[in-house]
């Protein structure tokens, strides 16, 4: 018959358990920290804001609202068509332009400018905005946001912005 284990092997066993658990945790941390960090990286990075030309001043008629397209601030080489963004650009007078976001403030769907009715309409849930971007009907909680616009050397330029989120 064996006697009860003496204290020495018990202590040894407890030590081995602790060191094994600690080493396993270390392995887990070495694997998970970079993986999770890599996935969360887009939250830390802010893209620069850059000015993108969208056409010569003379292309736009005073009082008219047209869609213009431009490229995102720092598109990845494989982004293809997804790097493009649009805005609704209106020439207010000789020198002033306004660029409205195309994203409905309800849930981000693309609003359309209906020139005869002078309204922006959203196809998804029927949001409607007046020509100045204020809400006239439907679910949108806020007016259409605007992009900064400027005129440089005869070119109209729009400053890129993140997709407006709540």
């Amino acid at each position: 018959m064996e006697s009860a284990p003496s204290p020495a092997p018990l202590q040894r066993r407890r030590f081995l358990t602790r060191i094994s658990v600690a080493l396993s945790a270390a392995i887990g941390a070495v694997l998970s920290v970079p993986v999770v960090g890599f996935l969360l990286a887009p939250l830390m990075q802010r893209e620069p804001r850059v000015w993108r030309p969208v056409g010569g001043v003379d292309q736009f008629k005073v009082g008219e609202t047209v869609s213009v397209r431009f490229e995102d601030a720092s598109p990845l080489p494989w982004a293809g068509a997804t790097a493009r963004t649009a805005a609704w650009l209106r020439r207010e007078d000789e020198s002033r332009f306004t660029a409205y976001s195309v994203h409905c403030t309800h849930l981000g769907c693309p609003v359309r400018w209906i020139s005869d009715a002078k309204l922006f309409l959203c196809p998804c849930h029927g949001g409607v905005y007046y020509a100045d971007g204020t809400v006239s009907a439907g679910p949108p909680p806020r007016p259409l946001p605007t992009y900064p616009v400027r005129v440089r050397r005869g070119q109209v330029e729009i400053q890129t912005s993140p997709i407006p989120i709540a």
Partner: peptide, 10 residues
């Protein structure tokens, strides 16, 4: 996190 950045893209 969903968009993977400021805008939709690559």
């Amino acid at each position: 996190f969903i968009l993977a950045g400021d805008t939709l893209g690559g």
